[in-house]
């Protein structure tokens, strides 16, 4: 039983169904990668875990989000607040907008600990400096008093991570935490997050579109496509023998060393918008292996040795590179 269990979660807005039967789990000391292109429903899943769906007028229509055996979807806002920011922390894509430009960054980190842990100002302050130091921010005491505009993008993202850690959470949900950063800085932040998970026994849900990032740091991977779970597997199996044609195609979209010039072809078409989801398997219009059954019937979940796949004709090891 994992720390966080997303169990056949469906999310809707009005009469539209945005997410359908999403299921995955993540345990302490583990990193789950939530992958997909824009429009796949990754960020929506994060909003659902945070209980922030009402912000966009959406709601959970079926399923459960169990965190440490409590179903978050059944809690009211005031009880949810005891989890959000305290035991579950969130890191957003853009560190530039996650920080208040008019407050020294140290105080913004303090406030989390004071609010959730009830620390006094002095204790919170020294803890903040300690966390900043742990995140390899040089001269943390000086940085403490600075304002967001005085810091570089990578430093700001570290401060956002510090805010997430200040409530001593058990689970961090990070939505594209490195997309806005330079590649050399992205590598630093990913390594930082990875070591936090390993050393502190945190659970991390890492939302990303980058299969490279997934391969480098995740333990298990859930691949979303157009609001449904396409496949879930351990990271090694997923890259070695992807079972869903979409996963396979997605991995093949990334140029690798020594790849022949014309081998990169991409996936034809684009992710459909919610209003234009096709019937049957939603990937079928872009799938090279589609059959007539794919156009009409929604594929059920088929168990794999270490995961699950939703496809009428899942690939096995031999078909790869076929």
């Amino acid at each position: 039983m994992g720390l966080l269990e997303v169990d056949r979660l469906s999310v809707g807005i009005g009469r539209l169904t945005l997410l359908e039967e999403i299921a995955f789990e993540v345990d302490r000391g583990e990193i789950l990668g939530l992958v997909g292109e824009s429009g796949s429903g990754k960020s929506l899943t994060a909003l659902a875990i945070a209980g922030l769906l009402p912000l966009i007028g959406a709601r959970v229509t079926a399923g459960a989000i169990r965190f440490d055996n409590t179903d978050l979807t059944r809690l009211d806002e005031s009880r949810l607040r005891k989890f959000r920011g305290r035991r579950i922390a969130f890191i957003t894509q853009n560190p530039m907008t996650a920080l208040d430009p008019l407050q020294p960054i140290g105080e913004q980190v303090d406030v989390v600990a004071r609010l959730h842990l009830g620390l006094t100002a002095d204790v919170a302050r020294s803890r903040t400096i300690e966390i900043l130091t742990q995140l390899r921010i040089p001269e943390a005491a000086t940085i403490y008093r600075q304002y967001p505009h005085q810091l570089s993008g990578g430093m700001k993202q570290r401060v956002v991570i510090a805010m997430a850690l200040a409530g001593e959470p058990d689970l961090i949900v990070a939505d594209e935490p490195t997309t806005a950063l330079d590649v050399t800085v992205q590598a630093q932040i990913i390594h930082l997050l990875t070591s936090l998970v390993r050393e502190r026994g945190l659970a991390l849900v890492l939302i990303t579109h980058d299969m490279g990032v997934v391969a480098q740091c995740c333990d298990r991977v859930a691949v979303l496509y157009a609001g449904r779970l396409a496949e879930q597997q351990g990271v090694n199996a997923l890259f070695a023998t992807p079972a869903h044609p979409y996963t396979h195609a997605l991995i093949d979209c990334i140029p690798k060393d020594g790849m022949a010039r014309d081998s990169l072809t991409g996936i034809a078409g684009s992710v459909p918008s919610v209003a234009h989801f096709p019937p049957g398997c939603r990937f079928h219009p872009r799938c090279i292996g589609r059959q007539s059954v794919c156009e009409t019937n929604v594929p059920g979940a088929t168990a794999l040795p270490g995961g699950v796949v939703s496809c009428h004709f899942p690939l096995n090891g031999d078909q790869r590179h076929g």
Binding site: R136, T184, A187, Q188, Q216, F239, D257
Partner: peptide, 25 residues
């Protein structure tokens, strides 16, 4: 070299365990 090391390969078998570069531009 650092730029090359920061480019994540989509191969979980080839993980890099150290960030090759500290500091920022």
């Amino acid at each position: 070299r650092a730029l090359l090391d920061s480019t994540f390969s989509p191969d979980p078998g080839k993980r890099r365990h150290l960030a090759s570069l500290t500091g920022e531009i």
